[in-house]
Design a protein around this nucleic acid. Sequence first.
DNA 1: AGACGTTGCGCC
DNA 2: AAAGGGCGCAACGTCT
Length: 568
Amino acid sequence: MSVGTRTIPGVRVALVVTADGGGVLCPLAEDGSAVGPVLRVPDAVAAVRERERADRPRWVWASTAETYPKLLAAGVRVDRCHDVELTEALLCGHAGRWGEPRGLGAALARLRGWPVPPDPPARTKELQPTLFETGEAALPGGVDPLEALVEVHAEQQRRIGGVALPGRFRLLVAAESAGALIAVEMGATGLPWRADVHDALLVEMLGSRSAAGAPPRRLGELAERISQAFGDHRMHPDSPAEVLRAFAKAGFKLSSTRSWVLREVDHPAVPLLLEYKELYRIHVAHGWSWLASWVHSGRFRPEYVAGGVVSGRWATRGGGALQIPRKVRGAVIADAGWKLVVADASQLEPRVLAAMAADHRLAAAAGDGDLYAALAADAFDGDRARAKLGMLGALYGQTSGGIGPLLATLRQRFPAAMNYVEHAAQLGESGALVRSHLGRTCPPASVSVSLEGSEPAFETAATDDRKALSAARARGRFTRNFVVQATAAEWALAMLASLRATLRELGEAELVFFQHDEVIVHCVEGNAERVVTAVHDAAVTATRLLFGDTPVRFPLAATIVDCYADAK
DNA sequence: AGACGTTGCGCC
DNA sequence: AAAGGGCGCAACGTCT
């Protein structure tokens, strides 16, 4: 079937998919102006497939999360897109108007000075309708969806050109949009997951399953022994309140039942409780009911939410995909004849800081090996644990736990890097906004914090001052970490997008998992070595895209394994 | 009963 | 003396 799209010029193509599966397309120039006629086709999927085959334009659409699953379900993958919704959120954030409705309807309303409608509620996987939906419902009556899309996109391109560092922001928009494509693809592909192996792991840890409603055998036994340790006082070990009461009866006043609090208590129930907590956690969070809800046909298919975290990290909806406990990773096993390539960026955040701050001394000290070991040799008398503690303290704004001397050492050895995070913290404390390397902007403080102007008239004033100071410090820790975490997320997205492009050329290799600084590729055995090379190349590409010719190295450790648990 | 906040722990 | 960033999830407690 020919829809004639090959003849349409334009590096971008705006696309609206209508409820009946038809499509409306319009070729655009880079600046968003239409450079060809609007084309109506009866089959949007076929039109996209054909145009993609021809010259892989950048698809401009309202929402990747909304449109792409349907294309993908029909077997159509696209190379690039511009996600209007995600871009709108980035632009609003950059302008200090964080959290405003980001949908096409809202963006158009702002543009035309109309009342801004709220975003339609996010649709979850389970609630996906069977037909295409284009967000038309979110547009005021009488507005042509394609017209709205083209108009908003052109305005976005203009706004992008007006930010302080437009080149970087363009990269951010491209990376965010690529991330949205990958999130949909990865959610559809799923992570190879052997339910039989998972079940065996659970039985090994928790004991066999009991009758419905009853805990697994070992959990039940532990609960029984815990009760005995409290003098046959019947209790639920998973209820913090009951545990506190039981300890109080035994003469221990505890501030909480956190494991590090329990560890300090000399009582026979403590080791049993600690073991119970660990197993109970596995049972409720990644036990048999998780397995039944989330693993089907040998795949764990979580729903990834690109741009779901303010720092640009992904979130997930359901399944807890970003918190897979190490103890169940043994169930992640490659298909027969296939391998897993597990790659993670080593100490990504300190390296990102070194690059952002152009701290050549930190770059040189880090090299391309174990950053903390190198730092330890360089400044901490070989004590790697202290080097790591100090660096993480600097990134998170920690001051307690006796790390003061460590921070002092770092400040002395790497002033550029330390000044960078200190400055970000000061900006946050004074109420200013901070941005990532590519221009993602932090949200404003929800409660405005003012250090000045408090009237010390009553005795509560001192308390208020303390509260305000504490809130300002918390804000400073947030902005301090934001600049690094958000830039690390950008590096990871750029790496992922580059890797995806290479894997498409390679074939028989698919991205199956991504978590902040770690990626898993599932590929035929014969491709594994090439995938490892692709991973390393992607790291180099991402580094160059973000930081140009920085001396900072971003090693990406990749291992070829059959089972996720065997990596690192 | 349902909304919402808190606790505690999993991951980075 | 303390003052550790970002999430998701399940269970519990409180309010409505």
